[in-house]
Structures are given as C-alpha cells and as structure tokens.
Design a protein around this nucleic acid. Structure first.
Length: 720
DNA sequence: AAGTGCCAAATTTTT
DNA sequence: TTTGGCACTT
C-alpha cells in the first residue's frame, strides 16, 4: 500500500477485519451494496503488501470479468500489476488444472469444452437417432429440457425427482429423459467433450482421487477467496474444502438473500454449512450499505423481510435521500414503456447520464416493447444477457473447424460442418460422422469417404481445407484467414438473405483470434467467456442505456434503476410455486431493487397480450402487494389517454396462493407411517416418515426412498 | 428415402 | 429471431 496507515481510514471495522485476517477460515456475510468487492480488492492488495507471494493467491469469482476488474483495482492500490494472482471463475480454473493434470484422470489432454448450445445439439442428434416413445408434444420448453438433461449433475435433487415433480403424469416422457441423459453422457465421453458440469466434477475428482495433485494444488494456493459464495453448488463447495485441506485458509463472501441461481444447482445452504465444514470459522458481517439511499433501503428491506432467512442482517445506510421509490402501473405494455422513456428523458434533463441508468426485467423478451419505444426516441441502449457473438450460426461454423483441429474426435463439430455442405442432410451427415469417427485418422477417412455424386465436391473441399490447415503450421490468425476463404461461398449460400449483416461478426472474430498464439486457449476462452456482440467493439464509447435481465445485472449498480414487468404472472415467473422457487423469485426482485443508488422505479402493465393475441387484465406482482404502501410513492397516469385510473389504492388482499389452484390439497394427516401409496411415475410404495408441514419420505418398491412434497406429488392412497 | 423450402409457432434466468 | 411441421422435389 502506498500509505499503510490509511487502510483503517479507507474501511469500516468489519471490512478492516476481513481484509487483515491472515489465516483460518472466514465467512463474510455481506449485504447488498456493502462493499464486498472493495473488501476483497483491499485484501488481495494487503496480502501482497505484507509479503505474501502473489502466486499463492487464488481468487474465485462469479465471472471472469469480475476477477479481472478486482485484480486491476488491487494493482492500482499497489502501483503494480497483480498478474501473478490466479483469478477467474471455478470453470476457468478447473479448465487450467485439468489441462495440466488431466492425463492422470484417464482423459487425454485433448478435450473440448461445450456450451449449452452444443449440449442442445447433442440432444437433438440423440433425439433423432434414438427411438423415443414419449409424446413429442409434451416435451417441456427446449431450455428446460437441456437443463434437465445436461445440468442435473449438480442439483441437490436427482433427475428422477426433478422429472417427477414436473412431469409425473407422463411416465413415457420421463423414461425418454432418462434414456437421453444416459446417452448424452456416453456421447460426451466418446468424443472428448466436456460440459460446464464436467469441468467441476473432474476438478473434484482430481482433488479427491489424486493425492499428489491435491497436495500440489493445496500447497500452491495458500490463500483461497471465493466471491458470491451463495451461488456455488455442492461440488464447488467440496472443491473449496479439498483445495484448502492443508491450511483451511479460505475466505468466502456471500449474501444469502441474493441467491438467485438455484436452477443451475446453486445451493445457498452452502453458506449455512460453511462453519460446519470449516470448524474454526470466523463470521464477519458487513451490514452498512454504501450504495442506496435510505428510502430505497427501506423498501428493499421490506421486500426481503417476509423471506425466511437464516443469517439475519439489518442493512443501514448513512446516505441521505428524500426520494421514495416510485410505483407505476401503465394501462398496457406500451404505456409502461412510454412512462419509462419519459422518465429517462427527465432524468437526463436533470443531468444524469444514460450510463447511470438501467432497466431491469425478469425475462429477455419483457423488454421488446420498450426497445421499440427507445428506438423511436433515438435513445441508445445496450442489451445484456442477449445473444453472444459465438452463439450465432455462422460463428459456430468457423469455430467448428478450429475445434476439429484441436480435437478430431469432436463429432458434434463434424456433424455441423457436414450439414453445411449442399445436399447433405441430417441422415447423410450422421452416416459420414459414424464412418470417420471410427477411423484412426478421421481427416484421411473423410477424404476417402465414398461420396454421392451431388455432394462429392463439398466433401472434397472440406478434406482439402483440413489438409491445408494441418500442414500450414500457421498461428491461429493465419488459420482463421484460410478458413474464412473456404467459408465465404458456403456462408453466402446459407445466409443468402442477410449475410452482409453477419459479415461484420466474422471480421470481429478475426480481430479477436489474432491476439492468440495458442489455438486451444482461444477455443476454451470463447466457450467459457463468449464475447458479446456490441457496437462498443468498434471503439466509440457512446453513452448508452443498459437493458438487462436481473440475473445479468448482479453485482452492478446505477444511479437510477427501472424494474419493469412487475405484473402478476410475469414476476414471479409463471412456473414458480410457493416454496423455495417462490422465495427465489422474491430474492430476485430484491437483487433488482438493490441495484439502485438514488432513483428506483417499479413499473408494471395492467394488461398483457396472451399468445393468441387477446388481452388479459393482470394485477401487480404479489411481491409488490406485500410491500407496505408507505415505502413507495404511487405515480398516477397523468398524460396520454384520459381514461386513467383514479386513486389506485394498493389493495390489502393477502398474497393469493399462486396457481396451484386445481389440485385439491390432501392433508398430511391422511397418511401415516406404513401407508401404502401409489405414484404415477414411481409406482407403489410405503410411507416411511412424515415431515410436517407437507413432506413425506416414501420407500418405493422399484425406485428406492424419495422425499416427496404433497403440493407437487400426485399420490393416491392404496391402504392406510 | 432424403433434401429443400415455406409457413406457423413460441420465447426464464446462465458460469 | 429461431425452430418444427408439412408438402413437394430429387
């Protein structure tokens, strides 16, 4: 530190404690806006300043960007770079370690990381090649399906429970999912592919099964810090435990009321369990909020109050402010958007830059209307959480070639490339893929494949491309150049209608790839941290408004924040039921509202368009109904159509039980220990244990013991 | 039997 | 804006 004594002035007591602790496990419970990033930054700087080797610090964060920014800030304090600190996401570090130690685990160094879109591709391939019996129509949404099949490893509940909760009435469908999951695993294994979950699972295996690796890693990283600990899953928690086994020198920072990633396997009980896993744990609470004004804090405290929390914090702030959060209900989505635009213009007039304003929403499409409205007012905006550069089809074509150079077993990429050949469809592509993946030299096998008349040329072209690439010895930039030459005609044929627009992306890719010396790390980086398509890449740092999903807004802050779409049915999401998922939606609203420093606007439409283009009147979100009306100021409809709404008193009706409507509630008392019951998916079973209020453990004859919840389970009693 | 082209439908959140 | 089904062509 430039000026060591100043540390105490820069930080409050709790922060100072966290920063200067040098050994032993520490759990930092940090409320929203309490300066936890700042605390971690200072800790890194302090450690290095007191002589700790930067090499021995491991900083695990939620995104790669977050760790880069923290290390940059720490570097500024030290007047020196922190480049020797290992920082990044769990997945990034897992990748690095697996490349180094992976061969001991039985897979070669050649594995390719796949993202969700790839997982989806595999599942589609499997769906067409396996004969599935279930009714196609009843498949859940595509995303839900992918989550179930590829993302269930880390879930505390297993896949069978998940299926049964949601689709217990469709046992054929449930069978299909299990079959798909089995084949999905085999496919990945056979073709050297690894998804996000696999990275973590294999890191854990590395630590658990190879004592030598465990010791090396634990020795090397003497100081382990984890940010956003409430978003870790069980495997990540275990990794932390194993990696620190020699010194227990771990500091985790998190906020249980900001846990919003359980759909991805995050388990906020990790925070509760931390002191059990590390018995000597010191708990430090950061309760002062440095971000929001008091009126905003009162409202956000009110949002979270009704949630059952384990670690209670009472946030306080000394930031003055007389503006209460505003609540506005527009007649429909268009008027809601209209309101937002008007207020944005007013804020700008008050001197607040667009950079300091954000609009947040639950789901990506909730901002469509607003995007139109912003466009017509020529307000520049940037949408977060949208399409990534590498998610578009033309990018994936080019990446597939690069991926094959590194991992020729990658059947997914083979399939993708073959499909881009004219006159080759799914069936032909699969046949060719099957033939070449069995061969010793897949590239030679491709060249000698007995091709049909119409598509012979396409195959030959591809084979020639690979021959050229593999003999060239070029750097990634040069390879990319060659690929683009081959790709140009294919590209123009595939995207005949809009290829000029997509061409820009290809140019951008070339620029990115030229900064890499090593093809493997380029491919890893694009999958783990895909660059976004933005105009900022072209160098003009323009003043733009941020539109973002709440999930992508995590950890950020703005002067003024609009949370839109707070209507019943939209927020919480329609599929959330009372219980944990309902609470998570509540925390999501909490995260959204706590992003605001001075101005907070909560808006909702009173009318929504249903898919069949009819209008449906909706009320405001049940979460808003629960908030005490004194904490916000209601803005009335004061312009435009005059058929407005006079004095809408916030109704005092109790939060209505969300849509578990039709199912009649079976009281727990109907069951007793030993009752025989029948379940549509698991079949017959015997009740083992009753857990009030509404859970029971049942031992199924064919599926073992399951814990079921009466609100979800369709149980019928055979004999009591 | 496979490939192509056209129209209709749907859309949680993501390292 | 992208995916799925259907009819038509090769």
């Amino acid at each position: 530190m430039k000026n060591p004594p100043s540390l105490k002035d820069e930080l409050n007591d709790s922060q100072y404690q966290a920063v200067t602790t040098t050994d032993g496990p520490v759990l930092v419970i940090a409320g929203a806006g309490s300066g936890k990033t700042r605390t971690l930054v200072y800790r890194v700087a302090h450690l290095i300043n007191s002589g700790v080797d930067a090499d021995s610090i491991l900083l695990l964060t939620f995104t790669r960007k977050a760790s880069q920014e923290m290390l940059w800030r720490a570097g500024r304090i030290l007047n020196d770079s922190c480049s020797r600190v290992t920082g990044g996401t769990f997945h990034g570090v897992a990748n690095m370690l697996l490349r180094r130690y992976g061969s001991h685990l039985g897979f070669g160094t050649g594995f390719t990381i796949i993202d969700r879109a790839d997982a989806e591709g595999i599942i589609n391939l499997l769906k067409s090649s396996l004969e599935l019996s279930g009714p196609k129509k009843q498949f859940p949404s595509k995303r839900a399906l992918i989550n179930m099949i590829s993302g269930s490893v880390n879930k505390a509940i297993d896949l069978e429970d998940l299926i049964f909760e949601q689709y217990s009435h469709l046992s054929e469908f449930a069978d299909d999912i299990l079959i798909l999951q089995k084949h999905y695993k085999i496919f990945k294994y056979d073709h050297g592919l690894m998804d996000y979950d696999d990275l973590l699972v294999n890191w854990q295996r590395l630590l658990e099964e190879l004592p030598q690796a465990r010791q090396e890693i634990s020795n090397r990283y003497q100081y382990i810090m984890v940010d956003e600990y409430q978003d870790t899953n069980l495997i990540q928690a275990d990794i932390v435990r194993l990696a620190a086994y020699q010194h227990d020198n771990v500091m985790v920072v998190g906020d249980d009321s900001q846990s919003i990633y359980s759909f991805r396997g995050a388990d906020f009980y990790n925070i509760m369990r931390f002191p059990e896993i590390f018995p000597r744990t010191r708990i430090i609470k950061l309760e002062e909020n440095y971000r929001s004004s008091q009126p905003i804090l009162s409202l956000t405290n009110d949002i979270i109050r009704s949630a059952a929390e384990k670690y209670t914090k009472t946030l306080f702030t000394s930031i003055e402010g007389e503006r209460k959060p505003y609540l506005y209900g527009g007649r429909d989505e268009r008027l809601e958007a209209d309101f937002v635009v008007k207020k944005i213009l007013e804020l700008q007039a008050e001197g607040i830059d667009l950079n300091n304003i954000a609009v947040l929403f639950r789901s990506g499409f909730h901002s469509f209307k607003l995007e139109l409205e912003l466009g017509s007012h020529a307000i520049q905006f940037e949408k977060r959480g949208g399409l990534k550069l590498t998610e578009s089809a033309h990018m994936k074509d080019v990446l597939a070639v690069l991926r094959l150079l590194v991992n020729p077993l990658d059947n997914l990429s083979w399939n993708r490339l073959l499909l881009s050949i004219e006159k080759v469809g799914p069936k032909t592509a699969q046949k060719i893929t099957a033939a070449i993946s069995g061969a010793d030299d897949p590239f030679a096998a491709l060249a000698s494949y007995p091709a049909g008349k119409t598509w012979k040329q396409g195959i030959a072209g591809l084979a020639k491309l690979f021959a050229k690439l593999r003999s060239s010895g070029e750097k990634p930039g040069g390879l990319c150049e060659m690929i683009l030459n081959w790709y140009q005609p294919v590209f123009e044929r595939l995207y005949a209608d809009d290829y000029p627009k997509r061409q820009k992306d290809l140019d951008q890719l070339k620029t990115i790839i030229e900064s890499y010396d090593d093809l493997q790390s380029f491919i890893d980086d694009t999958t783990l941290d895909p660059p976004e398509t933005d105009q900022q890449a072209y160098g003009n740092t323009i003043d733009t408004l941020v539109l973002s999903t709440i999930h992508s807004a995590k950890g950020l802050e703005w002067e003024a924040v609009f949370v839109i779409g707070l209507a019943d049915g939209r927020f919480p999401h329609a599929s959330a039921f009372p219980g944990e998922s309902w609470e998570e939606e509540r925390r999501l609203l909490y995260v959204a509202a706590t992003r605001a420093k001075q101005y907070l606007y909560l808006t909702y439409p009173r009318e929504l368009m249903t898919p069949d283009r009819k209008f449906k009147r909706v009320g405001m979100s049940p979460f808003l109904v629960e908030i005490s009306p004194g904490t916000y100021e209601r803005l009335e409809h004061s312009y435009g159509n005059s058929d407005s709404f006079i004095s809408q008193k916030p109704s005092r009706r109790p939060p209505k039980p969300p849509s578990s409507k039709k199912r009649k509630k079976v009281p727990l008392e109907h069951f007793s220990k030993g009752s025989r019951v029948d379940h549509p998916f698991f079949g017959a079973g015997t009740v083992q244990k009753l857990t009030p209020p509404r859970s029971l453990d049942i031992s199924f004859d064919r599926h073992g013991v399951k814990t079921l919840h009466l609100d979800y389970a369709k149980l019928s009693i055979l004999e009591s």
